[in-house]
C-alpha cells in the first residue's frame, strides 16, 4: 500500500534528518537562543506597562499566559526541542516523498526520482521553505526581536512557501507558454510584502543589550542558513533514495 510505504519511509528519513538537525541545533543554534533570552526576560514587564496602548496588538507580543506549561530548562527543554525537530522533519519528509511519488506517477516525460534528483528537490524545498519566506521575507530572529503580529507573519510565511513551491512546480512542469506564470506566483508574496513591525529593534532597548542582540541575530541568521542547507539537502537526497527503493507505485 502506497500510503503506508510513504509514511514508513518518511518516518525513517524524518527521524534521521530531524535528529541530525536537532543535534546541530543543540550545539550551534540553541546557545544563541538561550543567550538572547537573557536579555528578553529583564524587559518583559516594563514594555507591557510602557506601551499599554495597543502595544499587544501591534507589536505581536505573545500574551504569554503565566499558567501555560513550558518545558523546564535543561534536559526537558532539549528533549522537547529534539522531538519537535524530528516531528517537523517527518512532516517535511512526508510531503516531499508524497510529491516525489506523485511525480513518478504522473510526470511521464520527466526523469524518475533517484538520490541525485532528490538532492535537487531538497534544494528546491529549501528555496520554498527557507530562502523565500525567511531570507527574502521574515528574517530568522532571536527571541526578543520586535516583529509584526504573529498570526499575520505566520499566514504570510505559509502563503509565501506554498506560492514559491507552486511557482517552481509550474516553471518545471507547465508547458512553455505558461512558465512565466510560475515566476509571477513566486514573486507575488514579495510584491505584497511581508508584515513588518512599525519599528525594527528589540524589546530590550538598553544599548548594551541591543548591541549584543544585534550580534546574536547575525550569528543566528548565518547558522540557521547553514543548518537549513544541510537539513534540506539531507532530506531531499534521502527522500529520493527511499522513493526509488521503497515506494512502489506499480503494485498499487
Amino acid at each position: 500500500m502506497i500510503l503506508r510505504n510513504i509514511l514508513l519511509s518518511a518516518i525513517v528519513v524524518g527521524l534521521f534528518t530531524g535528529l541530525f538537525y536537532g543535534l546541530f541545533q543543540q550545539s550551534q543554534i540553541n546557545p544563541i537562543i538561550y543567550a538572547a533570552e537573557e536579555f528578553e526576560v529583564a524587559e518583559e514587564e516594563p514594555v507591557v506597562q510602557a506601551h499599554s496602548h495597543g502595544a499587544e496588538a501591534s507589536q505581536g507580543h505573545h500574551h504569554h499566559d503565566e499558567e501555560a506549561w513550558s518545558p523546564a530548562d535543561g534536559f526537558e527543554r532539549i528533549a522537547y526541542t529534539l522531538g519537535a525537530d524530528i516531528a517537523i522533519a517527518i512532516a517535511y519528509a512526508i510531503m516531499m516523498i508524497s510529491l516525489m511519488a506523485f511525480h513518478d506517477l504522473k510526470a511521464n516525460n520527466k526523469p524518475k526520482i533517484n538520490t541525485l534528483q532528490g538532492t535537487a528537490w531538497g534544494i528546491v524545498a529549501m528555496l520554498a521553505f527557507f530562502v523565500a519566506p525567511a531570507m527574502f521575507g521574515l528574517h530568522p530572529e532571536v527571541p526578543g526581536t520586535e516583529a509584526a503580529v504573529l498570526e499575520g507573519r505566520q499566514t504570510w510565511w505559509l502563503i509565501c512557501a506554498i506560492l514559491t513551491a507552486t511557482g517552481i512546480a509550474v516553471l518545471y512542469y507547465a508547458p512553455m507558454k505558461f512558465k512565466a506564470g510560475g515566476i509571477v506566483l513566486a514573486a507575488l508574496p514579495h510584491l505584497i510584502g511581508a508584515p513588518m513591525p512599525e519599528q525594527h529593534g528589540f524589546a530590550n532597548t538598553d544599548p548594551a543589550a541591543v548591541e549584543a542582540l544585534t550580534q546574536l541575530t547575525s550569528q543566528f541568521y548565518s547558522l540557521t542558513a547553514i543548518g537549513m542547507v544541510i537539513f534540506f539537502v539531507l532530506l531531499g537526497s534521502m527522500s529520493g533514495f527511499v522513493v526509488k527503493r521503497f515506494v512502489k507505485l506499480q503494485t498499487a
Binding site: 537562543i33 501555560a68 527543554r77 517537523i88 530572529e141 505559509l158
Partner: peptide
C-alpha cells in the same frame, strides 16, 4: 507541520519553541 510549527496554543508553542526558531518559522 502545522501542529508542530504553527499551532497557536501556548503549550504547543512552548514545547516546540526552540525548534520553531531554528526552522525560521515566525515566532515571537
Amino acid at each position: 507541520l502545522f501542529a508542530v510549527g504553527f499551532a497557536p496554543m501556548d503549550v504547543a508553542h512552548n514545547a516546540a519553541h526552540d525548534a520553531r526558531h531554528a526552522f525560521a518559522f515566525p515566532c515571537h
